[in-house]
Design a binder for these strands. Structure first.
Lengths: 178, 178
DNA sequence: CAAGATAGTAAACGGGATTGACGAAGTGGT
DNA sequence: ACCACTTCGTCAATCCCGTTTACTATCTTG
């Protein structure tokens, strides 16, 4: 199904392509789900300043404490970005930074008392959302989706890593038209 | 995953939340997929300036033309944001804006000749990626995921719309703290 | 100890979106 | 016909989340 030589698609085909595009479905669902989660945690936990990006950090934080650099690696962002986030979360009183006894350069990031409580709430909210969803679309479906995503994610990551180079599954229709 | 002993919650909870959170999986997969798509279209179509955000606009554009405000509603972003995006895509020669004969305030956004060709390429790339993925994780899985997402998306959207209203959360009596 | 790697910070900037204010054009009631 | 109101789109300022570049302080190793 090489594209370059096809006549124009019909509007119907276009509509179909739009509606049932995996990436689009994924993206939209993910975005909304994320927002719902943040909104709920913010409400439940009563931390008005809590932002979506903070939510992204917290699950990577070990209870024993974690270094900023480790967080950065886990999250796939720069340590500077992590630093900024940590500043904010610290200001919210959710985490604290203590010197690392094992390394004078490093600091250990860990939950405060309050942060631990918040984490609980957050985990609960996440679980609730999934439960909520499961009740509406079927528990088996949610489970299946997670399983499927777990399979798909590494593949997609590989695709990303592959970048420009050969991904030609079907003989490589590379009509690099200029 | 070495977690300190903690009375508040179990390491299992934490690990589970980290590893198998639906939203996280969704988000990560979607983001990468999106980037891969953009990168490929950029290459295939030869529009170096094409950005991920542009790709997000195009599928919402009817062939007959669409108003900026309509696009904004469809995409769930502000019309200002759409305006910016449109400026850029227009500069790339992919779309053009014509006055709306039915409404003097409005302008109709539509593909240029070149844009239509690009759309074809884009659609083809998207299809290619899906085929690619299907070859690696199974065609049935991809189909199933799309079907599942089609079921889930409206539910999630409803959840978002529900927003403030309380449903039993966290075994608690708290519908929206605050 | 010198050379180099690593933890973290600082400053500037970029992309993508938001809010707020606005002019211009359509719409409806009197 | 008029005036109030809404809607389409734009400008400008700002926010959010991250990046690059550059740097200090500290650890590690030969």
């Amino acid at each position: 199904m090489s594209v370059a030589s096809d006549p124009l698609f019909t509007p119907e085909q276009l509509a179909a392509a739009k509606a049932v595009n995996l990436g689009h479905l994924l993206f939209r669902t993910a975005r909304i789900l994320n927002e719902v989660g943040v909104a709920r945690v913010r409400g439940e936990f009563g931390v008005p300043g809590l932002k979506a990006s903070h939510m992204a950090v917290l699950p990577h934080l070990d209870l024993a404490g974690t270094r900023a650099t480790t967080l950065a690696k886990r999250m796939g962002i720069t340590k500077q970005a992590v630093g900024q986030l940590l500043d904010e979360i610290e200001a919210l009183g959710v985490i604290e930074r203590a010197p690392d006894p094992a390394d004078g350069r490093a600091r250990i990031v860990r939950f405060t008392e309050r942060g631990r409580a918040g984490l609980l709430v957050g985990l609960g909210v996440l679980a609730d959302i999934e439960r909520d969803l499961a009740a509406r679309v079927g528990e088996d479906r949610i489970g299946r989706m997670k399983a499927d995503l777990l399979v798909l994610l590494p593949v997609v990551e590989a695709l990303e890593r592959a970048g420009e180079v050969g991904f030609g599954v079907n003989g490589g229709t590379r009509a690099r038209g200029g």
